[in-house]
Nucleic acid binder design. Sequence first.
DNA 1: AACCCGGGGTG
DNA 2: CACCCAGGGTT
Length: 357
Amino acid sequence: MRDDELQRALLDWYDAHARDLPWRVGPAARMRGELPDPYGVWLSEVMLQQTTVAAVKDYFLRFTTLWPTVGDLAAAEDADVMGEWAGLGYYARARNLLKCARVVAGDMDGRFPETEDGLRELPGIGPYTAAAIASIAFDRPAVVMDGNIERVMARIFAVETPLPAAKPELKSHAARLTPEDRPGCHAQALMDLGATICTPKSPACGICPVMAACAARKAGIAAGLPAKAPKKAKPTRHGIAYLVQREDGAWLLETRPEKGLLGGMLGWPGSDWVEGEPAATPPLDAAWHDPGLEVRHTFTHFHLRLSLRVARAPLNAVPRRGDFHELATFRPASLPTVMRKAFDLAKGAMPATSAPH
DNA sequence: AACCCGGGGTG
DNA sequence: CACCCAGGGTT
């Protein structure tokens, strides 16, 4: 199959099977050549970094309801945006999202740059996202490369070099296939194909629109591509978290430092997370109980076992760290997942009343 | 180039 | 439970 036949088969499949997603224009509008709102394309592409469509949908709808334009988002409170992002992960994305919104709204009259180079200057927009926005929102023939497209290229052209060494070769194949006409639909077709048919583990080659073009399928090696360099093991770290509730129901929380793990998010005061024995340093003086509960959570590069301590505190308690958050305004959903797990475990194990110490 | 960043899905 | 997936920023 020639490159142009492959492009045609891919686009025909996309026109017939494109998923109806909140950030896309409908089928009729797409066939008229209408382009989607750049704000929605940008927001969805940032949310989709390292994250599946299923996980992103509700967050996207919530964000666009609260903040319909980039100007609305730029004017939002930091804490509100961080709270709405809670649970989606990679929180640097949310901090960069706000920075980017404020540059676009403040310096660019609310309009995103239309070129890959211009987009690439903005916070949180790297090579993939710049190419995706230029292609999808502005109809530019940028070469879009994400993990899905790398996998599809590795298979169609049976590239057996392991990643990441294979990246230049995979990009040259993708560049050759990128059309001048409807480049955004071409890129989305490749990503949809990778997400739904040309999947990592067991690709559905039997229903693939480009099976006739796929060298890996012919050779029977599709499921094993792309080859990858071996990864290293994750260590286990230990920590202690302190959950204390005041007589009026308020919980003691602290905002974590901007940089580093869970940066800028709310969390329970506690020890550092270390591979040895964590240092116990309660955030206030109280009768602390050890309910024997442990949160297990895995981050990108380590496993965490977080041991819980619980206490009640009087109304006049003065914490050494953190601030009490009134029960009326405290939303567990605004916590990152590991902190929400700790809350769910601890709230069933709180001591009955505050006790003298 | 190597390392730092979550959370969801699969087997 | 172990393992897999996968962009941007920083150093």
